[in-house]
Amino acid sequence: MTPQRRQQLLAFLESLGFGAASGLLPAEPTAARAALATLEEALTHSSTGQPRHHDRLEFLGDAVLRLAAAEFLRSAHPSLSVGDTSALRAQLVSDRWLSELARAIALEPLLLLGPMASGDRAGRATVLAECCEALVGAIYTLGGGPQGGLTAVQQWLAPHWQASAAELLADPLRHNWKSVLQEWSQGQGMGLPAYHCHERSRVHGDPERFECRVEVADLIGAGRGGSRRQAEQQAAKAALEALDLRPAPGC
């Protein structure tokens, strides 16, 4: 690693709130070089063909991100139902949110990309999300892994989550309940939810113009809205709320 690249990475860590006083980087030179190599790995996209690239840390970052977001919501919004918490977390760990975070922290100029990824402007948001998730894995690793890594990630991401959660809670229609229900059903091996919509009235502007029913296994939800999309979202929300009311396994 060149001295210029080292200074670039150190300045980037400081911009995230991990300056010299944070203790994220070891003081011992050899350990510090290894830590920066981990950060470099997160910022090296697999399209470069390098033997050490972002994939491994992205895999780790995916799991860490979900746990950190769950802990943040449990602490910051304890009154939310499980369904609402799941919906909000899905937004806070989504590829869209990660790509927006990557732009907010000026991640793109630091990335090492191969020719194909560099030339694919349409897929740039995906690349940013992937490497941002790998950065989560790197921060977790540098912070001590199981011994302190989660705290480091939460220290970094909490202010960003606070702002995003406030926006989402102020505008519930921004929740993508359908995505949350689909994520849950596929995670349970139940396949995709099936939506059945019909038009209740032909009055333009009627907030309950459409009615929708969603079914996935034995879980059912129904909702109404001024458009098919809104009705589907409300049906998915109702299904998630019904899921909250189910007794836990073994009860």
Rank of each mutant, 00 (worst) to 15 (best):
G123D: 08
G49K: 09
Q188P: 02
L128R: 04
P78G: 04
E211T: 09
D95M: 07
H77R: 07
C251W: 10
L13S: 07
P146K: 09
R5W: 04
E211A: 14
V203H: 10
R224I: 09
R246T: 04
S79I: 09
A129C: 01
R228F: 05
S99Q: 02
R52N: 12
A102S: 03
S81K: 02
R213G: 09
D206T: 13
E14N: 11
S185A: 14
M1V: 11
L112R: 15
V214Y: 06
L16G: 06
Q7R: 03
Q7L: 02
A163H: 11
G119P: 01
E133W: 00
H204N: 12
A166I: 00
L112N: 13
A106H: 08
S227C: 05
G223K: 10
A125G: 10
T85I: 08
K178Y: 08
A235V: 07
C197S: 15
A158Y: 15
A239D: 05
R121A: 14
R89G: 04
A134E: 04
F59C: 10
A122G: 07
A122I: 10
L168D: 03
A106G: 03
E14D: 14
G223H: 10
A222P: 00
A11W: 06
G49P: 09
G223E: 12
Q186P: 01
D62G: 06
G205P: 00
E232I: 12
S86E: 11
A129V: 01
A76F: 05
Y195A: 02
S22D: 13
L168A: 04
P51Q: 13
A37Y: 00
C132V: 05
E108G: 05
R229D: 13
E241W: 00
R246S: 08
P78A: 03
S185T: 05
A70T: 14
A35S: 14
A134G: 10
H160L: 11
L107H: 01
L181S: 10
R103S: 11
